[in-house]
Nucleic acid binder design. Structure first.
Lengths: 228, 228, 228, 228
DNA sequence: CATGAATGAGTGTTCATTCAT
DNA sequence: GATGAATGAACACTCATTCAT
């Protein structure tokens, strides 16, 4: 844009800046709210604090979200993207073994969700589900259901191809999911105020968890992810 | 009740009942508080509601617990029994294989903690840890640390006796704990308002989880806990 | 109560005092609210001010009335007693001329309503009716309708007995009511902040109004209620 | 519009319209404000609503009126025309009987004020006088005082010419004014949300009211304004 | 001039906590 | 001890007013 330095009227620019701010506001507020809701819970988070963290005044918050509750719902909705379709596509075209597939799914989950702020949503839902049944319902439809479906299909593939032994699919899904839920909860609760002794190295843990999930504690073969 | 004919006035009886109630008060309050804190979180639980559920007046609550925060601490403290000593004793004298030992530990954990109200404490800590750092610290010392220690010793025994392969102990502990934490969280959040499709059969899940933990998905042998 | 000076326990007395206060609270609050609502309108009256005038804290107000709106409704309801039955009884047994009857009705209205605080309710309703349609409806049923009925019956009697000439009853009712409504409005608006020049002597006005209503401006006979 | 062919671009036209609108702005705002103030009272009327009804933005309102209070004052001031001079002139040159004169005054009042939006101002003053003493004072000087003066002069004329009997002038003025005030209040309060049973036919009422005022309920002669 | 995004003082309402009874 | 009436600090939310664009 070489011409832009000659811009005769600053109107465009400042207008743009204002517009940009206006469009950015909801996002900034949602980000601030996510942080605080995850950190302190819904009830203990003050609206003014959210506003302050987003760099605006209390009134502005209510300009964008009609109430604290609507803000909460927006936070959850915003962070529950339908990332599953993309994910399922990847797995549908996967050509390796199902063990590799499962490992891939767990590792990419960590990179795309577990290690990001989005993981806080899970903590939020676990903590507040009973106070927001409608939101919990929404979360189940949008996250839990497709998530389970995804894992179930992987396990099914493993069984059908003779890679995994026959097992109770429904509960096996929970076995795969449990360590992931656990990591998110841990990170946002004990992990946030724990002494060094409880530090967890997520990548190491995931690697070993995959190993254990596939071959078990008694599994033969090389030692499992020895700590560097 | 042949003695009752000597009770000239019902005063004595109700007096006695009152005494009993008086001594029971703190316990009833703690039980009510546990329920409500688990259900709605600390901030969203009203002191009056706790009192009402315990069958006393608002004022009485503050007679026994100086503040809502103290009540919370007492709830946590009260429900963190030093059951570990007893438990460790059991395991120290355990004579079977380590696989059996691990299975025993997980199953008895379910009976003694997982399926009881005490499981709510874990949900509470996960939800509120960051609002109550001192309590979280206390919880770590009293529950997490000994719990980890217990699991670690089992795993260590397995490795030393050549039953389990060598692995990163610290993270393996998390692999054992994760499904248990998961069950408690699930039960008190999604599980409390979930449709039938998300129902979980804890015993089945634990059985299969033990199997998976020991032999993995690819493990040979008979199918794992096929659903009845 | 000569024995009361020996009352061994002051419990009874203080209990009583507390009880009395508790029972008196709603009344005190309603009185304070009536004053302020009449003076400043519903919206411009602050809940805290009402409480302060009743000698209690803001919180106490909400102990007795769930919301400002409920307080408003209670104020109106409280001051709309079914005084009409008593009134109608009086008029049913009235034996004089209908002129005397009308005069009696207007004068006793002044003593029982017009000159009391209850007159403020009319101002309130006139000012706020459109903001509280349900209350306005209630007011119509409880006050306007029976009030009109009462006046209508008097006029009807006058016509039937040949004392009053035939006229459009419905509108004649308004002619009787108008000066009374007017007095209440005036008193609580202009009258409350008017210079001496607008002072009104209600008794004089009513007397002359009765005279005019009965005989008109052109009526023969002695001068009408010359000012003392 | 033969000149319009010289308007090469529609800009001029819309420019013109804009100019016109610009000059019309204050008037539109005052009209909108009058409606809303009358309907909901001063405190319960939101500035933004006034602006919206006038078709401008919130900011624009404050461009023309420094504050909501100033807007209110302007509304009152604007709607209190010095129509009295014109009126007094009419009455000064009146040649009929004083009864006719009074009837004319009341009927023309209805046409010029009572049935127009201006009647809302009276409701406003009655409702808000105590919150705006200065405005109330102004209203007294500009409306009440000259209004009373006008009525007083008519009555005085009637007495002096022997048409009306001697009476307490001050209070007789109120007797004339009361039904007019009443009509305006009624129309803007109960009348605005009343069931058909409380409907009032202003012309009928005024006619009969005049009759009653002149000859009273007991007046001989033909029946008073029998309902068509 | 007009706009509407932003502000923050103000108000209704809640609820932990106190204390007279 | 037990009660529950009373308190007032705290917080969600509103809205008149400002001002950058």
């Amino acid at each position: 844009m070489p011409l832009s330095k000659f811009t005769c009227c600053p109107l465009a620019e400042s207008q743009a800046k204002r517009e940009r701010r206006k469009e950015a506001r909801p996002g900034e507020l949602l980000a601030a709210a996510l942080d605080l809701f995850v950190e302190k819970g819904f009830a203990a988070t003050r609206a003014e604090e959210v506003a302050a963290r987003a760099g605006v005044s209390k009134g502005t918050l209510f300009l964008y979200f009609g109430s604290k509750e609507e803000l909460f719902k927006a936070v959850v909705r915003e962070n529950i993207s339908g990332r599953f379709t993309e994910w399922e596509a990847e797995l549908t075209t996967f050509t390796g073994t199902t063990s590799e597939m499962l490992a891939y799914a767990m590792r990419s989950w960590w990179e795309r969700v577990g290690m990001t702020k989005a993981s806080g949503i899970t903590k939020l839902m676990m903590s507040e589900a009973r106070n927001f049944p409608e939101i919990a319902e929404f979360y189940q439809q949008e996250v839990i259901l497709p998530g389970h479906e995804l894992i179930r299909r992987i396990l099914q593939r493993g069984i059908e191809r003779g890679e995994f032994r026959v097992l109770d699919l429904e509960h096996a899904v929970y076995s795969v999911i449990a360590p992931m839920i656990f990591m998110m909860m841990w990170k946002h609760s004990v992990g946030a105020c724990a002494p060094a002794s409880f530090e967890m190295h997520p990548e190491l843990f995931i690697n070993q968890q995959i190993e254990l999930l596939l071959h078990g504690l008694t599994g033969a073969g090389q030692p499992v992810a020895p700590r560097a």
